[in-house]
C-alpha cells in the first residue's frame, strides 16, 4: 500500500472518506482524485503530493478494461502485439505474421518505440463474453502491461 503510506494518515475525513485507507482504495479505483485530499496540498506534503500524482497517472490513463501500459518499461518489442488473439484475427497478414499492421483494427500496436492501446473495446476482457485473457501479459519480457 504505497499509496496509503504517502497520505497524511490523520484520518481527517476532509475528503469525505472515513479514513485515509478508504481514500487510498478509492484513489486506486479512480473514484476520487489526488486533488480531493485537502491536507495533501500543504507544503509539508508537497513531495508526497507529486509522487502520488505520478503513481496514479497511469491509472487515470487506463481504459475501461483496466489495461495499463507502463511506457517506461516497454521495449517496443511487439510480442504483445503479435500474441494478442484479437490482433491476429483482425490483421492476419500484418500483426498476425509479425509485421507492421495493415489496418486500424488492432488493440495493441507499437509507435515511437513503445506499445500503445487502441480499440480497447475489442479486448477479450471486455464486453459480454469476456474471458480472462492474459496473452499480452505473459508474452511481455518486462511486465509493461498490467490490468487493474
Amino acid at each position: 500500500m504505497e499509496i496509503y503510506q504517502l497520505l497524511p494518515k490523520t484520518n481527517c475525513k476532509k475528503c469525505g472518506k472515513s479514513t485515509c485507507m478508504a481514500f487510498a482504495v478509492a484513489l486506486l479505483s479512480w473514484e476520487v482524485a489526488v486533488e480531493d485530499c485537502p491536507p495533501l496540498k500543504d507544503v509539508e506534503f508537497k513531495n508526497n503530493y507529486e509522487k502520488l500524482l505520478e503513481m496514479v497517472a497511469p491509472v487515470e490513463g487506463s481504459t475501461e478494461t483496466g489495461l495499463i501500459v507502463h511506457e517506461d518499461k516497454c521495449f517496443g518489442c511487439g510480442n504483445c502485439v503479435v500474441a494478442c488473439p484479437v490482433n491476429v484475427a483482425n490483421d492476419p497478414h500484418g500483426a498476425g505474421i509479425g509485421r507492421a499492421p495493415t489496418n486500424d483494427k488492432l488493440i495493441l500496436r507499437v509507435e515511437d518505440g513503445i506499445v500503445r492501446a487502441f480499440n480497447i473495446q475489442e479486448c477479450r476482457r471486455f464486453g459480454e463474453n469476456r474471458i480472462l485473457c492474459n496473452l499480452c501479459i505473459i508474452t511481455c519480457p518486462t511486465e509493461a502491461i498490467e490490468f487493474v
Binding site: R109, V110, E111, I114
Partner: peptide, 12 residues
C-alpha cells in the same frame, strides 16, 4: 515526427 512498428532501440 513519428515512427511506427519500430522498437525502442531502433527508435533511438
Amino acid at each position: 515526427t513519428k515512427i511506427k512498428t519500430v522498437c525502442r532501440k531502433g527508435f533511438s
